[in-house]
Nucleic acid binder design. Structure first.
Lengths: 226, 226
DNA sequence: GGCGGCATGTGGGCGCCGTCAACATCAGGA
DNA sequence: TCCTGATGTTGACGGCGCCCACATGCCGCC
């Protein structure tokens, strides 16, 4: 649909991209288990095995979809972060950014459960992947989270001692929330309950970190401008 | 191996249980995707399709394995809880019990990654499942968690207002930690880092809840007798 | 004691799947 | 111009879940 200028017969012209796009469609509505090379080939109007000219095996295609999913997740987080950026008070802004990052993460998982599941069938190990080929720092959920936490230390809200392994704690909480609600036991919860529980959870993280420096937090201020 | 007194030929005699045991073995070493009815039938020495006399379809078998896995998870949590029970001070005991429950949860996930994954392909929705057929309260990770949290309120460590949705927060954190380390991006972390991060994470939850009542916590006391 | 019914196990088949091997088609450079 | 490499096709193999018809043997009932 996008740009098929070349193809008419034998050689498709843009098969690789066409397969990826079809795969994304399928992944969105059926998740990772619904991805089948033969099915995708059929959808694109090409014979089975054609895909093997562009992907070593099924996993390679799934990895590609996961990559696109990661970009979408990053975008969702950045959208929420942009809003939090407008808070004027530096401390409240830093706190809001952490909450926003988590909120965006869960938003994406609930809005795109299929892609979210695919994403975590082949997620890059975090210590790498944070730096692009040219050495520039890429935007990636893990580096965004770390930036938020470093910020919280800078503004004096999070004690340096409590910074250790805080990425793991935050990521665990938010990821667990997403998994439990997307494919886990909480998948039947109502959207209202879900949102309320998420606010409670993000607030709990905030309050816990406030305690690390004895910072005073007012109830409700974190989600005042949600 | 266990009790095959009957069988020699045509009728196996104990096929259902044999299939489940074989399925558990496979699940432990290959996870849910490694479970195939035909393969299991082959292992048990019976023809394909025989399994259909005991299970409606593949999912039914997986559900059965998930049930056994849930029992094992519950046992792992109870083992840790029993240790925490020995703490004399009531407040510290209640806090230790919550941490122990989480610790047991993660222990199980890391010790039995295959079963853990199977478990969450068909986990019962929590509001149900907490009460057995005879009306007695069953032991179940979710009810254990709720009991721990109620305890924390009783001893005055957790504010009643902060009790709302606290199950979700705690479960999310611990489940996310487990998932990230079992099959997620943190799967390559060293056992030492893992354990250190887990202690930090469980401590963070404790400190956050202490803040809800202004309770004073001493560093290190939670994991003194781990 | 014989017999019939029902639970249990067998064998074959269908349409999926991923993957390998051999062959067909086409575009672009020597 | 032709040939070479990239790309797409056809065919096959084994494995899967599941449906069918058929075989076997245990049980209770007359």
């Amino acid at each position: 649909m996008s740009t098929p200028p070349a193809a008419a017969s034998y050689h498709h012209g843009n098969l690789r991209e066409a397969l990826i796009e079809a795969a994304i469609d399928v992944a969105r509505e059926r998740g990772p288990d619904g991805l089948a090379l033969r099915d995708l080939a059929r959808r694109v109007g090409v014979s089975h095995n054609a895909a093997y000219r562009h992907f070593a095996d099924r996993d390679a295609l799934v990895d590609e979809v996961a990559g696109r999913g990661l970009a979408a997740l990053t975008a969702a987080m950045q959208a929420r972060l942009a809003v939090a950026e407008r808070v004027v008070d530096p401390v409240l802004r830093a706190r809001s950014r952490l909450a926003a990052a988590g909120h965006g993460y869960v938003d994406f998982a609930l809005a795109e459960p299929g892609l979210f599941k695919v994403l975590f069938t082949s997620y890059p190990t975090p210590p790498d992947g944070a730096v692009g080929a040219d050495g520039a720092t890429e935007q990636d959920p893990f580096v965004m989270l770390n930036a938020c936490l470093d910020d919280l230390v800078s503004v004096g809200f999070l004690a340096a001692a409590a910074r250790v392994h805080a990425e793991i704690t935050c990521w665990s909480t938010v990821h667990g929330f997403a998994v439990l609600h997307v494919e886990g036991p909480m998948r039947t919860a109502s959207p209202a309950d879900r949102e309320a529980a998420l606010v409670v959870t993000l607030t709990a993280i905030d309050r816990g970190y406030a305690a690390s420096t004895g910072a005073v937090v007012a109830p409700g201020e974190l989600f005042a401008e949600a």
